[in-house]
Design a binder for these strands. Structure first.
Lengths: 118, 118
DNA sequence: AGGGTACTGTAGACACTCTACAGAATATAT
DNA sequence: ATATATTCTGTAGAGTGTCTACAGTACCCT
């Protein structure tokens, strides 16, 4: 009886980093909030599991693309806020254009076709 | 000095099956030709390595989505021709709509934004 | 005290692509 | 005939990244 069975889609490998970096472009945020933002923005289509989220954040931090500091969240709980570093912005731009190229390539192969000849 | 440095994009996990099934929608074909078709159709953006291709074909066959038979290729070599089964067509439709939903979701999160508020 | 929510985290399974290697069969050239 | 290129199929193993499942802290509310 859930109001919307949202038909979730699994993340394709390599896309989570991009989603996180893109989310942080709007300003610093913490893991829990990042996951919710992605979920909400994608109209509940994408859901990030904690087992993917936190390793990804640590990975991105180790790469120097994001930096962390403990602060207090809106709800008054301790939370690790991440922000984009300059190198992170470059990485975001790179991954975003890679994604666009890939999505375009997929579109080319998947195109309606019918007229295979021509 | 290559005429076009094609800037290849790595395949995202889970997309190869879809590309293969889509290629076979145009008619039976063998591994080597399938890979070339994907590469050409994607304007050289996507390249399928043999280490990905053949395991994928065997996987799809084991699932009953494609069926194989040995025949002779255009060039007169023995080649294993694959064709889409009825179940394969359903699978193709399913994976295609999944991809479209995913691509749309990515677009929602990556959208120009700027106006985060509103 | 009990349950809910917000928040971070780890371990291990699993799936899929990649690089690198290997081999057969045919054609072409020298 | 021997070499070389092309067409075609295949395997082994590494690497990567997502998932499920589990674990724990802290605060709030009744």
């Amino acid at each position: 009886m859930s109001p919307k069975p949202p038909t979730r889609v699994e993340l394709l490998q390599g896309t989570l980093d991009l989603l996180i970096l893109r989310t942080l472009l709007a300003g610093p945020s913490h893991g829990h909030a990042i996951a919710k933002h992605i979920q909400r923005t994608s109209e509940e289509l994408l859901q990030v599991e904690t087992g993917s989220l936190y390793p990804a954040l640590h990975r991105l931090e180790a790469q120097g693309w994001i930096a962390a500091s403990w602060e207090l969240s809106d709800k008054g709980k301790r939370a690790k806020y991440y922000r984009l570093t300059p190198r992170g912005r470059k990485q975001l731009a790179s991954e975003q254009s890679k994604w666009q190229a890939f999505a375009r390539a997929m579109g080319l192969v998947l195109k309606p076709a019918d007229q295979e000849a021509e």
